Amino acid sequence: MNGNGESNRDAVRRSYDTVAGEYAARLHDELAGKPLDRALLTALLEQTETGTAIADLGCGPGHVAAWLAERGARTVGVDLSPEMVATGRARYPAVEFREGDLLALPAEDGAFGAALALYTIIHIAPGDLGRVFTEVRRVLRPGGLFLVSFHTGDEVRHLDTWWGHEVDVDFHFLDPTRIAGLLEEAGFTVEMRLERAPYPHEAETRRGYLLGRRT
């Protein structure tokens, strides 16, 4: 674990701690305006082995995990930010929350039937993405699905302020072909790949989605 990577994760942790309350208040119902995301989550849920848990990696305050829980899933939210985890626990008692790092997930081998990481890997140093996907594979059961989404492109956007709060966080835009290759190298078969334009209420970036199955 290099110093730069550790420093980057500390900055991400502090930044999301800072905006946790406002993030939850602003985005708690964001799925209501994202029909494609709801469809993909429903497909993930329908293909997850009955009785197994779904991990929401980089869950933030847990609204996506809660949406799945409302539809019968057993969900575990994992986030780097202690304040996000605390906010989620207060808002969504039906979801189990764990504080944790995607490079060392707080779960045993094969603990989950499926996993998702929605706009989570955009905060990972590009050189660490392969290790993250290998770790996700570790905690999935054989045949488990992994849904990942991100902003597409090749730029890095940095925020010093977010909703009026001082932060220090980078957003890495990613190439879907590269991400698909890294998933395959980590032991996933990529079953679905798509991109969409932003909805009117979203930031003006193209969104990429990949669905991989653990081999």
Rank of each mutant, 00 (worst) to 15 (best):
M1I: 11
N2T: 15
N4S: 08
E6Q: 14
S7Q: 10
N8M: 09
V12Q: 08
R13K: 13
R14L: 10
R14N: 08
S15M: 11
S15I: 09
D17T: 11
A20S: 14
A20L: 02
R26T: 13
R26L: 12
R26A: 13
L27K: 00
H28R: 14
H28V: 10
D29Y: 00
D29S: 14
P35G: 05
L36I: 06
L36F: 12
R38M: 10
L40N: 11
T42I: 05
L44A: 08
Q47C: 05
Q47F: 02
T50G: 03
T50R: 12
T50D: 10
T50V: 15
G51T: 11
T52V: 04
G60T: 14
P61R: 02
G62R: 01
H63Y: 14
H63G: 01
V64W: 03
L68Q: 04
L68F: 06
A69E: 09
A69K: 05
E70K: 07
V76S: 06
V78F: 04
V78K: 01
V78C: 10
V85E: 01
R91T: 03
Y92R: 08
F97E: 03
R98K: 12
D101T: 08
L102Y: 10
L103C: 13
A111S: 11
A111T: 12
F112D: 04
A114S: 15
A115P: 10
L118M: 15
L118I: 13
Y119H: 11
I122V: 15
H123I: 03
H123Y: 12
A125G: 01
P126V: 02
G127S: 13
G127Y: 06
G127W: 00
D128G: 00
L129A: 02
L129T: 09
R131N: 12
V132E: 02
T134M: 03
T134R: 15
E135P: 07
R137Q: 12
R138L: 11
L140P: 08
R141K: 15
R141G: 07
G143T: 06
G144Y: 00
S149N: 06
S149G: 11
D154H: 13
R157W: 01
R157C: 04
R157F: 07
H158C: 04
D160P: 00
W162M: 13
G164H: 02
H165R: 13
D168V: 02
D168G: 06
V169S: 06
H172R: 12
T177A: 15
T177G: 01
I179L: 15
I179V: 15
A180Y: 01
L183G: 01
L183M: 15
L183A: 08
E184C: 05
A186G: 14
G187D: 06
F188V: 02
M192A: 11
L194K: 02
E195M: 01
A197G: 14
A197S: 11
P198H: 05
P200H: 04
T205W: 07
R207S: 13
Y209W: 13
L210W: 04
R213A: 12
R214E: 12
T215R: 13
